[in-house]
Nucleic acid binder design. Structure first.
Lengths: 136, 136
DNA sequence: TTCAAAACAAGAATGATTACGAATTAAATT
DNA sequence: AATTTAATTCGTAATCATTCTTGTTTTGAA
């Protein structure tokens, strides 16, 4: 997903293009890793010293709802990354040092052969943690 | 894992048997589900009105470190449950209503066939969320 | 240009979690 | 049983991420 596509996607839903929102998107487009909200805040503040957490969170959640970003919880903080829609549904290897990720196409739900009759499955999470080749 | 085994395990490591700690363990021994820290606090307060969060968290983390409990993050709060060491390594179905769990023996790491050469795998998480038969 | 909806800023509020000094308690030792 | 000491708890304050409130500004369409 590139910047233009994302902004177009938002525009179609009636969301406006703002400089802050664009800047937030830029950060994600340039980095293939999960990023914490406070890290985003710091980066944005370089261009807009007065952005508030409110703006950051509002946008991160909006972008997540619109499936432009994906969210996960790492050590008690929500982290976000650009959704790799080219892969469709997928999971991640996540580096516990640098936060960089590697998409994993394998989905356990395809192979699972457990009796879950009577259970209403809504969602699932599969993540592998460790050190990427660079940090290792 | 029963109460006596757990306390014995702690004693061997030099940890003391306290009434608060015993009471926390009791709660987990009697319930097969993930429980939030604040729920534990409330229950303990019935017997010890003056317990503090410090005591709760200190013990929950101690028990988790000693592998008597398992922890996971549900909707922004840490939840704990008794580790089912009878099953060895396993995963869970977690009911998003009542928090009750069903162990899942299937482990995706056994079936995965992804090229992760160069990656140092430390850990993984696989959880299925949904409604259990009772809540469904 | 005008205007309403959307978005933002500033800071306060919330809620989970952690930290800390003083007091208490378990368990080993005398 | 009394003493010792290290672990543990209590009470409270602090921290940190996140959410909320209110007033102001910006965007994009008419």
């Amino acid at each position: 997903m590139n910047l233009e596509t994302a902004i177009q996607k938002l525009r179609e839903k009636g969301y406006k293009k703002t400089r802050q929102r664009e800047r937030i998107l830029e950060i994600f487009v340039n980095q293939d890793q999960y990023i914490a909200a406070k890290t985003i805040l710091k980066e944005i503040q370089e261009d807009f010293p007065s952005v508030s957490y409110d703006t950051i969170y509002r946008n991160l959640y909006l972008l997540t709802d619109e499936e432009i970003l994906e969210a996960t919880e790492l050590s008690g903080e929500k982290h976000f990354r650009l959704g790799c829609d080219t892969h469709g549904h997928h999971h991640h290897f996540i580096c516990t040092d640098c936060g960089k990720t590697k998409p994993i196409d394998f989905c356990p739900m395809e192979s699972i052969n457990e009796n879950l009759q009577g259970y209403d499955i809504e969602n699932h999470k599969f993540e592998i943690y460790g050190k990427c080749p660079v940090c290792h």
